[in-house]
């Protein structure tokens, strides 16, 4: 069943130096329980697309449907809770005046999730699940490392018990061990709670191991969309091939695969 449907979505920014065509006529669908990876050129409109799905930015034209109904430009609390966002820049996503615990708790209070008396416990559990100590609740965002902040962003989104999570580079500031732990958590939750992810990332090795399908963006357009195995065994668009050809690798098996795919044979 389709949970998210994006139809002919376009976003043009007007700037003093002329219009910027950030997203051009993009259409795709995401099934409930699916993980769709969005990859592509830097500046190709991925974050802009995310902002439109979240209702942070209005579309210039086109339509976004969620669970069968058109999403209004101004979102009510039901949709705000159901669609959560893990933002690309974790520092600007956290209110500097709130400690970590209060930031994570805010969603629980706003959407009245669980009995009030249990909410601090839920906050601490959410932090622990992403590998942060419970005591971190007390700390200010500015005193956290980059990867610690990033995990707070994930904990905060997941605590709201969403249906769809748009993750914009959610593990770019994590070492690979912590990253593996967070990705496993995301996978478990997806299986257990039928969560749906739009997973924006530049890390193709992560994509290979977590996504069901992959959408490739270039200059505001969707240039290739396919099942993960297909994208990594027979990429069709030259841009997809050039992306895979540039992946930094650590072992010889990867190097061989990368070179084979890049040549398009």
């Amino acid at each position: 069943m389709t949970l998210l449907s994006v139809q002919n979505l376009t976003k043009t920014f007007q700037t003093p130096s002329g219009p910027v065509h950030a997203v051009r006529d993009v259409s795709f669908e995401v099934e409930r329980g699916e993980c769709l990876a969005v990859v592509g050129e830097s500046g190709s409109g991925k974050t802009t697309l995310a902002n439109m799905i979240l209702g942070i930015l209005g579309a210039t034209s086109g339509e976004i449907r969620f669970d069968g109904a058109t999403l209004p430009a101004k979102r009510g609390p039901v949709h705000r809770r159901a669609i959560q966002f893990v933002q690309q820049n974790p520092l600007s996503a956290l209110n500097p005046k709130r400690n970590i615990g209060a930031s994570v708790r805010l969603g629980l209070d706003t959407y009245a999730i669980g009995p009030r008396a249990d909410r601090w416990l839920k906050v601490e559990e959410a932090l622990e699940e992403v590998g942060l100590p419970r005591e971190m609740r007390q700390r200010a965002p500015s005193s956290l490392s980059g990867g610690q902040r990033q995990r707070v962003g994930i904990a905060r989104a997941l605590a709201c018990e969403p249906e769809l999570v748009v993750l914009d580079e959610p593990t770019s500031a994590l070492d690979v061990l912590v990253q593996a732990r967070v990705l496993r958590l995301l996978n478990d939750l997806r299986a257990r709670k039928k969560l749906t992810y739009v997973f924006i990332t530049h890390d193709l090795a992560v994509v290979r191991n977590v996504a069901d399908r992959v959408a490739v963006f270039k200059a505001g357009q969707l240039v290739e969309l396919g099942r993960t195995e297909q994208i990594f065994s027979a990429p069709e668009h030259p841009y997809t091939r050039s992306l895979i050809g540039a992946v930094p690798v650590v072992d010889d098996a990867e190097l061989e695969l990368r070179n084979k795919l890049a040549e398009g044979t």
Partner: peptide
């Protein structure tokens, strides 16, 4: 060694186990 083993690979062996 644990760090090296946890690097995700484009060859797609699945998510690395977390020791």
């Amino acid at each position: 060694r644990a760090l090296m083993d946890a690097v995700p690979r484009i060859t797609g062996a699945g998510l690395p186990a977390v020791p």
